[in-house]
Design a protein around this nucleic acid. Structure first.
Lengths: 131, 131
DNA sequence: TAATTGTACTATTTCAAATAGTACAGTATC
DNA sequence: GATACTGTACTATTTGAAATAGTACAATTA
């Protein structure tokens, strides 16, 4: 189940894009799978169809999905997904790490913090990192 | 010199807060130092005085600076600065690392990427991580 | 006194995001 | 063919945070 944060500074359509990518990578969504229709998805998520449409359009532009009028939207067969997400996340991390370094934060502290994230089980379907 | 990105999704006043914090940590701004006046800073940065005021108010609330009517705004003596920034950046990194993990990105890749950030010299006064 | 400081307002503007609604073309099903 | 679904393409409107514009006042400095 996809949960959106309507209060976030991150636009809904971008959150949606990220969620779909994540579902695809963890295998809850597989190549060739049909995504919910723009209208149904919007209804289920409680947002406007145009918002879903924008997310789909972006995803298609990025080669993640493809859409056919009258049929629907489907996860693309070619999975550049993982490498694409990988690049995306690593880039984010590098950017923040860069700033952190500028502020005199030690590399070891960052390593420790991130290693801690990777400890323990991957059990919950929660999308937010717990505090 | 502080350069703001007026196109960024991040509000100007937040960018300004971050910049000031960074200047403080790297020692370009020292405890007790007087910050530019709201009006002068706004003029220099090319933004509205209210925007600077908001940044200062936030910084004072966080204990980074203190302001006295008629005198000015000054960097606080008590430097919780570093620990405060540290917490802030580590939290950001953890959050993204969490998402990255959810997407099946390996720990080693993250470590490698971040270590690369920490290689080389700290020479430029550029604030953005180069691509 | 004059100039500067921070602070506190209100009003207005700006802009991206989101919503609302309509319309049209392609597909599937009966 | 008829109906219902799909994606797509618009326009118009609303919303809300951010930023701007302007004024006013109290405290400090010179």
């Amino acid at each position: 189940m996809i949960v959106l944060d309507l209060q976030s500074r991150v636009p809904i359509y971008e959150q949606l894009k990220n969620k779909i990518c994540e579902l695809a990578v963890i295998g809850q969504l597989n190549p060739g799978d049909q995504l919910p229709s723009v209208r149904n998805f919007a209804r289920d998520l409680g947002v406007n169809p145009n918002t879903v449409q924008k997310a789909y359009q972006d995803l298609e532009r990025d080669g993640i999905i493809y859409s056919v009028t009258g049929k629907g939207s489907f996860l693309n067969e070619k999975i550049l997904l993982h490498s694409q997400l990988e690049r995306q996340y690593l880039q984010k991390l590098e950017q923040i790490a860069w700033q952190a370094r500028q502020c005199g934060i030690k590399l070891t502290q960052i390593i420790d913090a991130i290693q801690k994230v990777y400890e323990g089980e991957l059990s919950n379907d929660n999308d937010e990192k717990p505090d």
